[in-house]
Amino acid sequence: MALLELQDIHTYYGAIHALKGISIHVDEGEIVTLIGANGAGKSTTLNTICGLQHPRSGSVTLKGESIQHLPAHEIVTRGVAQAPEGRRVFGRLNVTENLEMGAFVRVDKDGIKRDMERVFTLFPRLKERAKQVAGTLSGGEQQMLAIGRALMASPRLLLLDEPSMGLAPILVEAIFDTITEINAQGTTVLLVEQNALIALSVASRGYVMETGSIRLADTAEALRNNEMVRRVYLGET
């Protein structure tokens, strides 16, 4: 059984039909990526999964349990955490406090402490800046913090929205190395990216989205070799 399954999801922003029947699934232990252009509905898909948007029809099931009607704060307790697009760290809180906010729903003090250590091992830069106010971190550090904050919820499924956005290539590489490492440690990852090249290099499977629907679904390798993908998303001629 898939860890996460979306079946025929239709999501609207008022009258705008943003998702037109999305069906995807993510299996335990995978890295799955959603690639596509601006406005294709990638972030809406993530927001629908974590409850910030509710679908008008269709179902979202997590381990066989349907969650599409739950409010966002209850979905977190079921093991889904998101690092939102544009990072959106709590600018006035320091790094440690941001991480603590990530563990808001948890009560196991020892576990929280262990996960804090884990985040600091994954991102040593954050440890150096543990007491620094998040708003003064660099873009790359804020992205690390956003991912670390999501990990603090100890999720089974980690949703990452455009982790490469606005970062220097060398930082992007470092972030994606860490994403692979997080996955190797047992967290399933659903990754939304515009940078198809790097997303397809870490993912095992991928979906290509266009204007609210899934255009292609295949293994990452097959997508890398697909002519349309090469032309449109990898910029090859």
Partner: peptide
């Protein structure tokens, strides 16, 4: 308190606060 933290997170960013598990 925990509630104070939740208020602070909500003041900073309602959506993210909700995604952290805060019942708005």
């Amino acid at each position: 308190s925990r509630l104070g933290r939740a208020w602070m997170a909500m003041r900073e960013d309602e959506d993210v606060a909700q995604a952290m598990g805060i019942d708005l």
